[in-house]
Design a protein around this nucleic acid. Structure first.
Lengths: 237, 237
DNA sequence: AAGTGGTCTAGACCACGTC
DNA sequence: ACGTGGTCTAGACCACTTT
């Protein structure tokens, strides 16, 4: 494990357990150097991670302020899988695999998903329930070239855990788009609802070598949908 | 201007104008050092900014790949003001100030907005139209302690431009929450619609010294709403 | 004036992908 | 084997806040 990662984890832990309470200052970079016996640069890398995740805010001349974790500063943003989320939030959740097929991309699907025409992809349809409430319908397309094998069992658990753990893939980034759409008859049937609208999250997900391995349409019941984000202002566009 | 900022701007420009085209590699860090006559660390800081904004992806052993700017990789996320957005997208947009008042926070409002009870805040209600379509209803609460003066004229243009430009405030980060909510009679009247639902974006916005200066409820017509995001996977939560 | 984080430098070695 | 980016170090000076 990299040093700055370890320091980040340690500091994160200490912030979440209020060893470093909200509205107080972390030890100075100088002191952290002494505590962890590393160079200042390494400390600063760890602090950068804390900053990106909204755990601290640096104030020049003062120090690193621990931020209050308001109500729900959970990483609903930032490319977190459903499985990880439900675990982090300690939700009793259930996944049902509606179908799992190997299909060939046609030109329409190619435009939609970003996969090349004629390529093979897994199509996985799943519903997720939280405390017995059917809340989400996920339709995933996963590159067969990158994921040669996929079973219902893995799809029921966490596909991301399988990809990162078993296959050692390095998931890097995603382009997402959130809109509200009218429901189709198919949607209403699978989600067992008469709702007229649902929240649609389309995302293309890429590996660190920039290969796209996933396209997903995630459909949420509007009354069950909440997206929480921590955003930093990006000056100069 | 800081060196790494200037290098970032220069590289961004060259990527957007396809001097460095998508799917090609940037010059190596070594070469960039020679080009800009700076240390490697400074180059790496500039590349980090490009990475965060989804313009490049670094691949170890290969180099920095320029990413395709899919359809709309616009910064709808990342704390961008309405005014900046409509400018970036070149939209003919119009803002109407419905009301502008100085009010005192009561305990209910305090819970909602995050401002202290009994403190004074500006309440600004605005509607925005894009190509003649009334699309958004914004309700802003702005700290009077931080913003002593605010006029209808500034509210009609861009409050952010006023705060950063005139007042020299350093807007740093926000906590946001997106949900879909039923419309109230008031909503329907102000937005001139009969829609049953709207998209609600609540956000608390903070300065770099961690003072909260703004709470906003931004209500979007569902058929006009689109949220686009570029997200990087955050390992280790 | 003292102490803090912010920027910049120069150099070393490692991990990974390509040839 | 080579070249790439990734990590880590040590030190310098600047900008800002606090005392």
């Amino acid at each position: 494990m990299k040093k700055y990662q370890e320091i980040f984890n340690d500091l994160k832990e200490k912030i979440l357990t209020a060893i470093y309470p909200a509205d107080t200052l972390l030890p100075t970079e100088k002191k952290l150097q002494d505590i962890y016996h590393v160079s200042r640069d390494t400390i600063r890398k760890a602090l950068t991670l804390l900053t990106e995740r909204g755990l601290i805010q640096k104030v020049q001349g003062r120090g690193s302020l621990v931020l209050r974790q308001e109500l729900l500063n959970f990483p609903v943003s930032g490319l977190t899988s459903y499985q990880e989320l439900s675990q982090a939030l300690n939700l009793a959740s259930q996944t049902r695999v509606v179908s799992l097929d190997l299909i060939t991309i046609n030109s329409n699907l190619s435009r939609l998903t970003g996969f090349e025409a004629h390529s093979q992809v897994w199509k996985v349809v799943r519903t997720r329930s939280i405390r017995g409430n059917l809340s989400v319908l996920d339709i995933d397309y996963l590159s067969h070239a990158i994921i040669p094998h996929l079973s219902k069992e893995e799809a029921e658990k966490s596909i991301y855990a399988y990809l990162e753990g078993e296959l050692g893939l390095d998931i890097a980034y995603a382009q997402k788009e959130i809109t509200v759409e009218p429901t189709s008859q198919e949607d209403r049937k699978l989600m067992k609802t008469q709702d007229k609208y649902l929240v649609l999250i389309k995302s293309r997900v890429f590996l660190s070598n920039t290969q796209q391995f996933q396209y997903t349409e995630s459909k949420h019941k509007i009354d069950r949908f909440k997206f929480v984000d921590f955003a930093r202002r990006k000056h100069s566009l």
